[in-house]
Amino acid sequence: MTPVLAIENLHLGFKGYTGYTEVLHGISLSINPAERVALVGESGSGKSVTARIILGLLQEVRGATIRGELRFLQHDLNSIGTKHWRDLRGTRMSMIFQDPTSALNPVFTVGVQFIEVLRRGSAPLSEAAALSRASALLQSVSINDPERVLQAYPFQLSGGMNQRVMIAMALANNPALLIADEPGTALDVTVQAQTLDLMNQLVASHNTAMLFISHNLGVVREFADRIYVIYRGRIVEQGPTAAVFNDPGHPYTRALMAAVPRITGGGIADIPDTSDEFLQPCVNHGSAL
């Protein structure tokens, strides 16, 4: 089976006032069709930059040096041009950002933004056809009054509602890969649980492969088939979700797990700021497939 996404030995560095700083030190990961993979780590570990490299957003930043192999479906992402890459974004690969209210454009209605997304994907589409498709898609994310939402501006909707609009837009063109960067963090717990459930169902019914980025192992547990734990630009543990949760092999994974407060009580874990143990080599649980 050819993976949807394969990253091999990815390095990223920035040139700045103080010289060259390497941020990613050789990351390898792969995602199979219809597989849900989580990339988990603390802030500053390199999760979001990895997502931006896959989308080709960081390649355009001056001072950023990227090395390594990137394959998406049959494309070698290092050799395709910016135009080709732009054609892939929003159609074959799409992304859900952390804060939906700032990811949507505040000066256009949801409807206008939705039509733009749909027109990128398929052959010329009349406005009426696009709107009716948009309202069907909004209904599939449990928005009961799609006509009102299409006419509304993002700031007139709640955070949970905006996040669902983003999900509907991201899946509108049936992408092969969906990247979700901390999709629940800006929402409160109940809305987060509903949003994740919904995303889970949709990804399964569309057969979309998914890269789920988060800092919270609790959020990932019910959601991902496979987990990569990243620390300071290195993958420190990877394997099927059950294997990682039942037998976390790397000290950093254990720290990350201990950091999630338990609803059964037991106090708050004491986690050191840094530890030499965290830099131990990667623990590999193999692949479930």
């Binding site: 717990v189 987060q192 649980a193 919270n216 192992l217 609790g218 547990r221 338990r262 059964t264």
Partner: peptide, 14 residues
């Protein structure tokens, strides 16, 4: 109860 049920958890006991 619905609030508690929405909390993401990591352990079996939870």
């Amino acid at each position: 109860r619905s609030l508690i049920a929405a909390v993401p958890v990591v352990t079996e006991a939870e």
